[in-house]
């Protein structure tokens, strides 16, 4: 059984002919060739596969393709504007928020989502906002630094 799944991915209209139970994660990686979205656990615990679907972050490993039909999706490849990095991405580089890089796409998406919902998050809000994204390298400290810096950057840019 295959279904036609139409959705907007990073601003582009896409159509995929896939089994309806195919995971959105696999559709993005294998059909759309957007390999920036990572699989870490496959069970919605690690957050490496986080994408934004209709304005909310979701674990793409737990979304069957059919439920993405008609949705608007942003992946890590859609976060920068051309060659201009998003403030979160820039801050992850300058503040050491990425080490091995495997949790980074999901972590960046979660941070972007957090800063969309909360303009100037405090320490607890940052921790809470990123709690669904497991990082095994950084101990999170540099990631918190990066998110604080990104909040400052975003506040200072009109």
């Amino acid at each position: 059984m295959k279904s036609q799944v139409r959705c907007s991915v990073n601003g582009a209209a896409c159509s995929f002919e896939v089994p309806p139970m195919a995971r959105l994660l696999d559709v993005l990686r294998e059909e759309a060739n957007l390999t920036g979205t990572k699989e870490g656990c496959g069970e919605g615990e690690c957050g490496a596969c986080t994408v934004i679907m209709d304005g909310r972050i979701v674990n793409s490993c737990l979304v069957p393709a059919l439920q993405a039909d008609g949705s608007t999706i942003t992946t890590i490849e859609g976060i920068a504007k051309g060659n201009v990095l998003h403030a979160v991405q820039a801050a992850f580089i300058s503040h050491g928020g990425a080490q091995c890089g495997m949790c980074t796409p999901g972590m960046v998406i979660a941070a972007v989502d957090l800063l969309t919902r909360v303009v100037n998050p405090d320490e607890n809000q940052i921790r809470e906002g990123l709690a669904g994204n497991i990082c095994r390298c950084t101990g999170y400290t540099k990631i918190f630094d990066a998110v604080r810096e990104a909040a400052r950057l975003l506040a200072s840019t009109p």
Binding site: M1, S3, V18, P19, P20, M21, A22, R23, D26, E39, G42, P64, A65, L66, Q67, D69
Partner: peptide, 13 residues
């Protein structure tokens, strides 16, 4: 990933 998407149908009424 051990599930097989082809082994299941899914409909969205």
């Amino acid at each position: 990933m051990r599930g097989d998407a082809h082994a299941h149908t899914l409909v969205a009424p």
